[in-house]
């Protein structure tokens, strides 16, 4: 129903990221089994799945926060290994975590530039250029149409929606190639949600940014996503394009999902050939 808002992805859009056969366990808990995902340039991929399906673990591997037990990540045609979130950021992969990773005791502008601070040299000392960071943060938030009382206020004084906007703004500030958003709309009202979804659409269209989105609201998936990967019990149980699937079908598949085979059967039943 909303599919008309998504312009079709160029058929020859190159693959910008490939995670292959990723497995990860935490002690006795198996979080991911042999998961492979592929992302093309300018594509918006939705990751869906129940709580504990492994979505957050997968993106934390992509962001360098966790290291996979097995499997490879290929970014821009080269195999990469992320030992820390810094490495992933250096590769142009920015992540907005579910917990937003904002520092409550620091100001909005310090949060915006945490890990990539501007400096100026005074008497041979490498000091923070607070004025520049303050101005840049203000300018940037204005450009994005995100309104907060002041970039000087500490983050713990902001509302949930404002924090979420700051986290999203921070992630797109450095013009990433790949943007990973873990439930970016969780604390947002209808208007703010639409705003962030608009941001994602613009990034995709104007800058060819590829986006991985974890969302629970299936309606929103069909508004902005090109493709859906359904994770179930640490495995990719379904990989389908939004153009070939309807919201009702997706909900039916997710509800019926008891494992790969069950999903395959269910998917084959509703629409042969999409799995």
């Amino acid at each position: 129903m909303n599919t008309q808002t998504i312009p079709p992805l160029a058929p020859d859009a190159p693959v910008v990221l490939e995670m292959s056969n990723i497995s990860k366990s935490f002690g006795a808990v198996t979080a991911l089994v042999d998961v492979s995902i592929k992302l093309r340039r300018g594509e918006v991929l939705a990751l869906v799945g129940d709580n504990g399906a492994g979505k957050s673990t997968l993106i934390k591997i992509l962001s360098g926060f966790h290291q996979p037990d097995t499997g490879t990540i290929v970014s821009q045609g080269k195999e990469v290994r992320f030992a820390s979130p810094r490495d992933a950021r250096a590769q142009g992969i920015e992540t907005v975590y579910q917990d937003l990773a904002l520092i409550g005791d620091l100001s909005v502008f310090h949060n915006m530039f945490l890990g990539r601070e501007y400096h100026k040299r005074i008497l041979g000392l490498n000091l923070l250029d607070n004025r520049k960071m303050r101005e840049q943060a203000q300018l940037y938030l204005d450009t994005l149409g995100i309104s907060i009382p002041s970039v000087n206020s500490t983050v713990d004084l902001l509302s949930g929606g404002q924090r979420q906007c700051i986290a999203v703004a921070r992630s797109i500030y450095s013009s990433p190639r790949i943007l990973v958003l873990d439930e970016p709309l969780a604390a947002l009202g209808v208007r703010e949600s639409a705003h962030v979804l608009g941001l994602i659409q613009n990034l995709r269209q104007q800058r060819q940014v590829s986006v991985i989105l974890i969302v629970h609201n299936y309606n929103q998936i069909f508004e902005v996503c090109d493709r859906i990967n359904f994770l179930h019990s640490g495995e990719v149980a379904l990989d389908a394009s939004t153009a070939d699937t309807s919201e009702e079908e997706l909900i039916r598949i997710v509800k019926s999902g008891l494992g790969r085979k069950a999903i395959d059967a269910a998917a084959a039943e509703v629409r042969p050939g999409i799995v």
């Binding site: 926060f65 820390s84 979130p85 520092i103 400096h119 490498n126």
Partner: peptide, 24 residues
């Protein structure tokens, strides 16, 4: 006034968040 101080505060304020954003 330094990155060191900023990261020190970040570490104590929200250690998981600081780690997620790449603070050592």
């Amino acid at each position: 006034r330094t990155t060191f101080g900023l990261h020190t505060i970040a570490t104590g304020s929200n250690i998981i968040g600081a780690r997620e954003i790449g603070v050592r």
